[in-house]
Design a protein around this nucleic acid. Structure first.
Length: 105
DNA sequence: GAGATGACGGGCT
DNA sequence: AAGCCCGCCATCT
């Protein structure tokens, strides 16, 4: 079980700083936390988030500018909807323009 | 303490 | 070009 102050909490805090209409990649989050190769762990952290969380998990995507949440097709769709509502536009490939939307911390 | 897990990433086939 | 494979790292069983 996760302790109160851990890597996960750091991920949540960082993700919470992403403004609406912007996104960040798992790898980017990991680098910012001082663990350049811990992208997987970042994904794991968001994996444990409850539904009604205040953490904007939808703004975290993979390095290709796509939603990686392939473990849950339902939430994958939700994530896309949420981002679109924030002004993020997806192309025909379900991808978004990282150069345009990636948030610089 | 050792092995398995996972919302990833990058390289190779 | 699309897909498979291996490596990373903190957490879980």
């Amino acid at each position: 079980m996760a302790t109160e102050n851990n890597f996960f909490q750091q991920v949540y805090t960082l993700v919470s700083r992403i403004p609406a209409g912007k996104v960040a990649t798992y790898g980017q989050i990991a680098i910012l936390l001082g663990h350049p190769r811990a992208a997987r762990t970042v994904g794991w952290a968001l994996h444990g988030l409850p539904h009604g969380t205040d953490v904007p998990w939808q703004r975290v995507i993979n390095s290709k500018g796509r939603i990686s949440n392939y473990a849950s097709a339902l939430q994958l769709n939700l994530q896309k909807i949420l981002l679109e509502q924030e002004g993020v536009q997806f192309d025909d490939d379900d991808g978004l323009d990282l150069v345009k939307y990636q948030h610089k911390f």
